[in-house]
Computed example of a mutant assay.
Amino acid sequence: MTSMGDFPAWAAWLVAFCVLSGSAVTLVGSLGLLRLGNFYARVHAPTLGATFGMGAILLGSALYFTVLETRPVVHEILIALFVTFTTPVTLMLLARAALYRDRTEGDRDVPPADAVEDLIPPGHG
């Protein structure tokens, strides 16, 4: 690996911006986890923070290693694909498990399943 003296200033600023903005988005998502009221509201903030924050941080990492090694780095692309596909699926599974639990316990804040199915237009569910 080369020394940081060989790294161009424009790339250093761009990498710093990507990493700092990605970490700020992730921090906001984490704060949303603490601040929001119920499970259904809390589950969205960290998911969005993880997905968008991860994207910006990996973009900065890819730029850094691409400029240093003068070749594209694909490890970051694979990580981004994996996290982008698994994070929303995990959100969906957690939300469905919570809905099932709340409906079986008779929670009044959650509408029954047949009431929700009446709201879905034909051909969209």
Rank of each mutant, 00 (worst) to 15 (best):
P122M: 02
L27D: 01
A62P: 00
T104Y: 13
V67F: 13
E76D: 07
A62W: 00
H75Y: 05
P112D: 03
L59C: 14
E69P: 03
V19R: 14
G106H: 00
A11Q: 02
M1I: 04
A62V: 00
R96S: 12
V25C: 10
R108D: 09
I77L: 02
L91W: 01
L99T: 12
A95L: 02
W10N: 02
G60R: 01
T26F: 08
P8E: 09
T70N: 15
V73Q: 15
E69L: 15
A98N: 03
P8S: 04
P72N: 14
G123E: 01
L33A: 06
M1C: 14
D6H: 15
V19N: 11
G22I: 06
A95G: 06
M54T: 15
S30T: 07
P111G: 07
T51M: 12
W13Q: 07
G37L: 10
G55T: 02
A56S: 12
A113H: 03
A50P: 04
A62E: 09
R103H: 14
T90M: 01
L27E: 08
P72M: 13
P121L: 08
I79W: 01
A115V: 15
I57C: 14
F17K: 06
A9N: 05
G106D: 02
T87D: 04
S23N: 09
P8D: 04
L91P: 07
M4G: 14
L63Q: 06
M54E: 01
V67Y: 00
P122V: 09
P88L: 06
A16Q: 08
T87S: 02
P88R: 01
S21F: 03
L48A: 08
L93I: 11
